[in-house]
Design a protein around this nucleic acid. Structure first.
Length: 855
RNA sequence: GCGAAAGUGGCGGAAUUGGCAGACGCACCAGACUUAGGAUCUGGCGGGGUAACCCAUGGGGGUUCGAGUCCCCCCUUUCGCACCA
């Protein structure tokens, strides 16, 4: 196809001989021109929305839901997106060709701060800015030839989506899963809003890595994710289609720890100091009680003690600073004795009460019993301050007394009164029971996971559907008044407080209960609310009476394959699992987990570093597509590394893939006429070069099919296609001389195009047409490898002497041990190598190798 | 500190179960063709050696007829967690 005079195929149905005639007329004119082919097919695909559309369940085909994480509409795709979507699209296309009913949707995580920042900077309304970005990125995706069903597109910032956020919020409020409380929260001064714990990374904002997150006391809305903590944890064990790394990260994040709460009493008062411990078996070794500086009791102590007050304040400041800079683990342990004492309820022993800087107010009860002999930190602390260190656990195995601290639980109790001799495990159980029956404690499970703070003091998010009435208190917005629309014309400023609070028309409402004057909640929801359930909306994106239909969810869920970056291992993926369970309990879905399988792809890096504007090493997808075409860009993204590893972007590599596609192009064009002549004919008793080529073709098919089914090493799939093409090209003389019958030629080129289709959809579509095939290549059946034809009839077997390679012998592929051995011994190189030596042993692995052990 | 993954030519990477280390591609070199091109085609390309051969998968040890692959120790890099009681 030449640059000049090409008629858009959308206008005229393809002339089957077009390419070939062009080739004859002017060989040089026949050049692989990705821009032209890709434009043509992009138009055709746009005109045929059914091509990538999912079918109803009644299609009878097995369903396959493949999902890539939806992007934030920043306005520009980056290479990480291109890689993510190239993987998903290859899989989707493969599954289509395998005859599945594939759902492959795309959408936009469209609420968020950047839109407000852009509004400030350019004086553009966030909505306009966002929608323009979406349009731009959608164009990029279409230019890349990604096969999405745009009829199901979801844009989270539009009312028909976010009204369901509000609807879910109300359902959660009714179930007590959404609640309000005052608490210490993470505050990013740069975002001027609260952040969830999950959004604080090393004490810094997840969006501003140089901005230290502050702690503030605010009244906030929370989702009770902790209600599902155990279930979220247990569910991980069954998620064997998820990477172990992600599961481990979630386990750590949930941080379940089983232990006992025990009340020590404050000497000289009836007050109780409740401590949490995982090692109640060591309680006879408790030689002090340690309180967090912010513990409620500490305030009582300091009220009458100015010196103590000052010391505690200093510790609070220190903890705050450490928390903010993220080196909480690094501060030196220190503390101060309060002069007060606590009574151990098990033995009535009086131990001193300290305040220590390493005790956290928000974990456990904010108070611990300190057992220096059997805990690293307590040991360090006690050594520093000369607090008694008392051994109460001896190794179960007996023998010498181990050095302290002895933290193992493989032990028995000593110096523990009537409990001496019990194993740690037994003692924990026993002491727990005693605490419960004596009403001075109980078994307790503590989690690191905290409830999800969802209030944001920002404009560009889902309004929280709540109304504050002086008379009726907190009143939910009735369902029939949803959505609570986000006002459109609003001035964005960087003043404190929620921007919505400055919009009187929004704020002032009638109370739905009493009809009196009331005020709307002005905080908006965390954008992670949007992304927690978006993939359910795809299946029923136009539904105006429910977030989605139950039946449809039953059909499509769980997602068969979810693909995205590992950076969402905690945030998005834990919230999604939570949300799925909430929906299940609302009776909307049956599945416990959103996705059966999760794949986390590696990062795209350049020159060994993550691409970033500040490093100036950003590669623009548009640029790549303009220079080498979408097919080459996508195929390189799959070829340069296995999908789970980091990928080093090398532009020369893209050029290489582009050259390869040019070779395929010319190869098929050159022999297309012969191939077309062989359509519908059957191949009979192939031999010689025909057999050789067909064999390679079947081997390649088998390899790629297998990879799609499990390993996903698409880099080697592309390499295998290259080898097949190299082999075909190497036989060019025979092909041109007509030595390969048309039927075989047809089969070879047709299969080559089919194998290429998931990776380079544009070239595949064009060549499919060129071969005179009907219908979309996407709906053609994936080729099946014939093991008989894939089998070599002769193989090369290495012959070793003492494990070192001597030579390679050719034998029939089914050759038995004896034949192999004979062939090896007959070889002249082997002969000269073993001359004058004794053969001690001969190892023959049929089909693999011969190894002679000689001396 | 704890946990996980990784370390192979100049570069990206291959070797799926212990069986020819370096597939495929990039870069580079040589040649062909040529209205000279960032096009296409052919060949070469881990290191040493004229050669027979020898050496080589972060380092050291081990198991084995045979180790990039399994085991032990160590080094480096990346990621995650890190006063969680």
């Amino acid at each position: 196809m030449g640059r000049r005079g090409a008629v858009s195929a959308a206008e005229s149905p393809a002339s089957p001989h077009r390419l070939h005639l062009k080739l004859m007329a002017d060989e040089k004119e026949f050049r692989y021109d990705p821009a032209e082919i890709e434009t043509k097919w992009q138009q055709r695909w746009a005109a045929d929305p059914a091509l990538y559309a999912a079918e109803p369940a009644a299609s009878g085909k097995p369903k396959y839901y493949v999902l890539e994480m939806l992007p934030y509409p920043s306005g520009q795709l980056h290479m990480g997106h291109v890689r993510n979507y190239s993987i998903g699209d290859a899989l989707a296309r493969h599954m289509w060709m395998r005859g599945y009913n594939v759902l492959h949707p795309m959408g936009w995580d469209a609420f968020g701060l950047p839109a407000e920042n852009a509004a400030l900077k350019n004086n553009t309304p966030p909505r306009d800015w966002t929608l323009a970005n979406i349009a731009a990125m959608k164009r990029q995706m279409q230019r890349l030839g990604l096969g999405y069903d745009w009829a199901t597109e979801v844009t989270t910032c539009l009312p028909d989506y976010y009204r369901w956020n509000q609807w879910f919020f109300l359902r959660m409020y009714e179930k007590g899963l959404a609640y309000r409380k005052k608490s210490k929260v993470n505050w990013c001064p740069e975002c001027a809003t609260v952040l969830a714990n999950e959004q604080v990374i090393d004490g810094r904002c997840w969006r501003h890595e140089d901005t230290i997150v502050e702690q503030r006391d605010l009244v906030q809305w929370f989702f009770r994710i902790t209600e599902y903590a155990d279930e979220l944890l247990e569910g991980l064990d069954k998620l064997d289609g998820w990477p172990e790394k992600v599961r481990t990260m979630q386990r750590n994040w949930i941080g379940r720890s089983e232990g006992t709460e025990v009340d020590f009493s404050l000497e000289g008062s009836g007050e109780k100091i409740r401590v949490f411990t995982t090692r109640v078996d060591t309680i006879f070794g408790a030689t002090s009680v340690q309180l967090a500086p912010e513990h409620a009791l500490v305030a009582n102590f300091t009220a009458s003690d100015a010196v103590l007050r000052a010391q505690v304040d200093e510790m609070i400041a220190e903890q705050k600073k450490a928390r903010e800079t993220g080196d909480i683990g690094a501060i030196e342990k220190h503390g101060v004795a309060t002069g007060k004492f606590a009574i151990n309820p098990y033995n009535g022993e009086k131990v001193p009460i300290w305040v220590a800087n390493y005790i956290l107010a928000d974990y456990g009860t904010g108070a611990i019993m300190s057992v220096p002999a059997h805990d690293e930190r307590d040991f360090e602390f006690a050594t520093k301050y000369g607090i008694e260190i008392r051994r109460v656990i001896a190794p179960a195995a007996g023998g010498e007394e181990p050095e302290l601290p002895f933290v193992s639980e493989e032990g028995v109790l000593v110096n523990s009164g009537e409990y001496d001799g019990l194993s740690c495990e037994a003692a924990q159980k026993k002491l727990q029971e005693i605490a419960a029956s004596g009403v001075f404690g109980e078994a307790k499970v503590t989690f690191r996971l905290k409830d999800w703070g969802v209030s944001r003091q920002r404009y560009w998010g889902t309004p929280i559907p709540m109304i504050h009435c002086e008379k009726d208190g907190m009143v939910p917005v009735p369902d029939d008044q949803l959505p609570v629309l986000l006002p459109e014309q609003i001035e964005i400023t960087q003043q404190g407080g929620s921007p919505l609070g400055r919009v009187p028309e929004f704020v002032n409402v009638e109370c739905p209960k009493c009809g009196g004057a009331a005020k709307r909640e002005t905080d908006t929801m965390d954008t992670f609310v949007d992304s927690s359930w978006y993939f359910y909306r795809y299946i029923d994106a136009k539904n105006s009476t429910a977030p989605f239909g139950r039946e449809l969810a039953g059909y499509w869920f769980p997602i068969d394959q979810y693909i995205g970056g590992v950076e969402h291992a905690i945030l998005h993926l834990i919230y999604s699992r939570f949300w799925t369970r909430v929906m299940r309990d609302l009776g909307l879905t049956k599945n416990n987990e959103p996705a059966e399988r999760l794949f986390t792809q590696g990062m795209v890096i350049k020159d060994g570093a993550k691409m970033s504007k500040s490093k100036g090493n950003v590669v623009s997808p548009d640029d790549m597509v303009a220079r080498y075409g979408a097919d080459a860009t996508r195929m390189y993204a799959l070829f340069a590394a296995p999908p789970d590893r980091d990928l080093d972007w090398q532009e020369d590599g893209v050029a290489g893939v582009s050259r390869f596609l040019g070779r395929v192009w010319r190869l098929v064009a050159k022999h297309a006429e012969a191939a077309r002549a062989g359509r519908g004919q059957s191949i009979e008793a192939p031999q010689g070069v025909t057999l050789k080529l067909l064999r390679k073709m079947h081997q390649t098919t088998a390899k790629i099919t297998q990879d799609f089914e499990g390993r996903w090493h698409f880099n080697t799939c592309v390499a295998a296609i290259m080898m097949l093409v190299n082999e075909l090209q190497g036989a060019d003389a025979e092909l041109s001389a007509g030595e390969v019958p048309p039927a075989a030629m047809h089969e070879l080129l047709r299969t080559l195009v089919l194998l290429l289709a998931p990776f380079a959809p544009f070239v595949a579509a064009e060549l499919w047409e060129e071969l005179g095939e009907e219908g979309a290549v996407l709906r053609a059946a994936w080729p099946v490898s014939d093991p008989e034809l894939a089998k070599e009839d002769e193989i090369e077997v290495p012959v070793q002497a003492n494990g070192k390679l001597v030579t390679v012998v050719r034998v029939e592929s089914g050759a038995d041990q004896e034949t192999l051995k004979k062939a090896a011994m007959a070889d002249s190189k082997v002969q000269s190598r073993i001359e004058g030596k004794t053969i001690i042993k001969v190892i023959v692995v049929p089909g693999k190798l011969v190894n002679l052990v000689v001396r």
